[in-house]
Design a protein around this nucleic acid. Structure first.
Lengths: 349, 349
DNA sequence: TTGTAGGCGTTATCAT
DNA sequence: ATGATAACGCCTACAA
């Protein structure tokens, strides 16, 4: 057990260590930081480490950062942390940063937008070396502009073409995969339930859906409903569908969370999945198999998305010239078949 | 639009502002910080603000923190961020801290435990004013000891009695509420599916379950299964139940995530909920209504848990003497009835 | 092989 | 009403 310095009294500084070890602060600093260009006698080195240990010396990160003008900290501005999808991205970011010796500060994009003093607190110069922005589909242009003016920044799944490096998932490929899965089961009457108005993520998935339909040849019918990313948006969209004279035989939902609501509404309406209608959603998550009916999904590399964004930022900080637009194609979208998709009923159109 | 300082060249410092405004750094500092004890001519004050604005001056948080020896940052060491339950706690913490002008650094407890150099990076003296530890049921005594030796700390739902302030939910009340709901529906043969071995959270909920049974009078049968907090633990527990010669008429599951797995397995086994068996779980979450069957839950104030923990820590930092053990009883556990609970079948025991 | 001195940007104390 | 100075703790030329 290391000797506890006990929380009484001020924490020992480098000079305390140096004094006790009978060397100058310079030597102590260089030895403790494993500076290879310093040559000290082995016993001196040992003594310094010993004293540091005994005193429970912990270097002051603030002073170090001030001196080196880098904080080894990055900021993550995140939209909707309640979504497990976003949490996965966060984990990817945090993991990669930790590997590189960086710590991660988390902020909520909505709060930062509402209260500009919070933004300033967060951006307080020196505290952050860079920022990753995952701000959703809202109108955060202003926030992005403000942040990227102060610090190196990377955008994740951003909906706008800002002059800032950005990382995206391959939404088109995902939409195409989901749709062609249905087509290969024999479906032709397929509806797309998308995200909110103006979301390029949703638009990308929709264009994949359309592409797959067109490639299938047979006079496809494009049928897209705008919804949102929440479960209640899925409920609303499903309700809208139910008001129609006839249901399509299959649905592609742009998001697994939205799909949760779709399935629940279909169930309470007595519509059987997949007998009456097939459903496939984009993004996999732990709960997909536990929904009203185990949901067939297209898995996208969310964790890698976070890692890539972090890697890009860290690279920039290390002086590399960043590619300003990255599309994550590896691993590619991956279909996870469960029970919500099947061939259309014999009688169905 | 504020004049952009452009990212070229070093950021302006307080001295730059002072020089341009033709005052000393002292005055500039005090004016910009609204020090009430400084009396300057209005035009001087205006000039300083103007220059700061024009230069795009942003104070350096590092230097300020170093000088004041406080960073206005707290650390959150979190276990299993993948769980939406934990995310809610995080949001509570982050929200309360942001209100108080603090930023939040997030770390993963497992990583911190595995790699001691990461712990040191995270704790780097000066960077954090305090730490909130939400480390789950694992054996993190060592981590907790280490952290709390360096910094003021608050524990959340911790499983051990450490000499550190701690905040807990009222697990006993939750377990009791869930169970008495079933009892009032007429159930007597009720099984409890708990969390992992040694979790005091689970133990607390179980003791509430037992208390409710005992209070019901009629020769209760205690029947508890140890499981875990993940959906797959719920699946395993349900499978175990299905191997029995006879099923109980109702189940209390200690966690809504675990319950997801329970419901899914019951469904694939053809056991109807709530006709054949009722299920109630502790903790509410957005997905509860979207599961194999909409799940009756007992809602606990997770967000408030985070807020309270943060409040306690911030209070300590402000010099208040902390109460060293807080049980959150307000709002009290709240039953949210859905479709997974009903009276036992007439024929049932 | 080791030490000295200066400065990172701020703010608090004391002086004018 | 304003300014000079020192100090927070560390790192790193440069000097010895």
């Amino acid at each position: 057990m290391p000797t506890a310095p006990d929380k009484r009294g001020p924490a020992p500084t480098l000079r305390d260590v140096a004094a006790r070890a009978d060397v100058s602060a310079t030597i102590a600093s260089r030895v403790l930081n494993d500076d290879p260009s310093v040559r000290v006698r082995d016993d001196t080195r040992a003594r310094i480490h010993e004293v540091a240990q005994a005193l429970g010396y912990v270097p002051n990160g603030l002073a170090r950062s001030l001196r080196k003008s880098r904080s080894d900290a990055i900021g993550l501005v995140m939209h909707n942390l309640a979504s497990p999808l976003n949490t996965t991205v966060l984990e990817g970011v945090r993991g990669r940063c930790a590997d590189a010796g960086y710590v991660t500060l988390v902020a909520d994009s909505d709060q930062l937008t509402v209260d500009s003093s919070r933004l300033r607190t967060f951006l307080a110069r020196g505290r952050l070396d860079g920022v990753i922005l995952h701000v959703g589909y809202g109108h955060h242009d202003r926030l992005i502009e403000e942040v990227s003016r102060h610090l190196p920044a990377v955008l994740v799944n951003a909906d706008l073409t800002a002059p800032v490096p950005a990382v995206r998932l391959d939404d088109t490929a995902a939409g195409r995969l989901a749709t062609s899965h249905l087509i290969s089961l024999g479906h032709t009457d397929i509806c797309f339930i998308g995200g909110p108005e103006g979301s390029v993520t949703s638009l990308g998935r929709q264009s994949g859906y359309e592409a797959a339909l067109e490639e299938s040849g047979r006079q496809p019918r494009i049928d897209a409903i705008r919804a949102g990313w929440g479960p209640e948006d899925g409920e609303a969209a499903a309700l809208e569908l139910l008001r129609r004279p006839a249901l399509p035989t299959a649905i592609v939902v742009a998001n697994v969370v939205t799909a949760s609501g779709v399935l629940t509404v279909l169930r309470s309406a007595g519509v059987r999945v997949p007998d009456d209608i097939s459903v496939v959603a984009i993004h996999d998550a732990w709960f997909a198999k536990h929904l009203a009916i185990p949901l067939t999904t297209v898995q996208l590399p969310l964790f890698e998305l976070g890692e890539t964004a972090a890697g890009l930022l860290l690279g920039t900080l290390a002086g590399k010239e960043p590619s300003d637009r990255v599309l994550i194609t590896d691993p590619p979208p991956h279909l996870i078949p469960r029970e919500s998709t099947a061939a259309p009923r014999a009688g169905a159109r």
